[in-house]
């Protein structure tokens, strides 16, 4: 009998300790990717997919740029503003409208052409 009581006491006290430790465990916050929504989430998803430049914010390096090999500029629309840094140490940017379908020549001689932009994600 004594051993039975001792056994139930030990079991019960152990159960209490285990339950208490669960109750006092730290509650965790949502995973940042699950927590995000909208454009913020699209940005996070495309970065997770390896696209470090989801909003097309970086300067494009010009290619050789003659009429047969124009620099390709992505756009979601039929026309887009393009700025050409004509020379390495130019102090101003030459802006021009570029229409889809036709290539265009900057006054410095480099050619540009619009291409279809890929969706971010």
């Amino acid at each position: 009998m004594a051993s039975l009581i001792a056994r139930s006491l030990v079991l019960n006290s152990r159960r209490g300790v285990q339950l208490t430790s669960v109750r006092f465990a730290n509650k965790m916050m949502a995973d940042p990717m699950e927590h995000a929504t909208g454009l913020e989430k699209q940005e996070l998803l495309s970065k997770a997919a390896g696209n470090e430049n989801p909003f097309d914010m970086r300067v494009y390096k010009r290619v050789s740029g003659d009429q047969t090999n124009p620099t390709s500029v992505p756009s979601f629309y039929e026309r887009r503003l393009v700025g050409c840094i004509c020379e390495e140490d130019a102090t101003s940017i030459n802006w021009m409208w570029l229409e889809k379908g036709e290539s265009k020549r900057c006054e410095c001689g480099y050619w540009f052409q619009l291409a279809d932009a890929k969706p971010m994600v």
Binding site: G38, L39, Q42, E43, P54, F55, D56, M57, F76, A117, P119, M120, V121
Partner: peptide, 10 residues
């Protein structure tokens, strides 16, 4: 991108 938001980060 499906939202009506423009294709920019701002």
């Amino acid at each position: 991108m499906t939202s009506s938001h423009g294709h920019h980060a701002f």
